[in-house]
Amino acid sequence: MNRAAAHLLTRLYPRRWRERYGAEFEAFLATGRGGLRASANVVWSALFEHIFPTPGLKTDQQPRSFGVIVRQPSAFLPLAMSFTALVLVLGHVALFGAVREADEGATAHLWQLLMAGQMPVLAFFAIKWLPRAPRPTLGVLALQAGAALASMAPIFFLNL
């Protein structure tokens, strides 16, 4: 495997794992056989390490506040997707009026994709962060739920 690919794949692991094993794992990948199968195995293992971290590995003891957690990609991505969905609906209403159409248009499909697409991200966020910092994570989940409901509200109230 070339060194750039090895470096990129190693970067998929959590920071505390990389601090201990990153250098040797990258060298191990760079000197080994590459290929799709090996890469997929590394991607899956990195994801597993994020969800079920190796017990006993020294973890960073930084306080995990609401502000820190809400800045995680898996926290703000669903918020951004809900916000985008809301802007899409409001933009559509502003341009074409609150008219129920028999045939779902591109806006409706985009809205559905944005709302459905955030579900796996939300699940990942909850699985990763609820065990580590339950209270602030519940706060972020409530915010995400609020954002999702806000983007659904125009559809419900305007009967689109």
Binding site: R20, Y21, E24, R37, V42, A46, G56
Partner: peptide
Amino acid sequence: LGPGTLYGAIARLEQQGWIMPLPP
């Protein structure tokens, strides 16, 4: 074993004290 699987096992075994690294 895939590379990720191997190093996942190595990390857990080392943290449990069942294996240890030698000088590189």
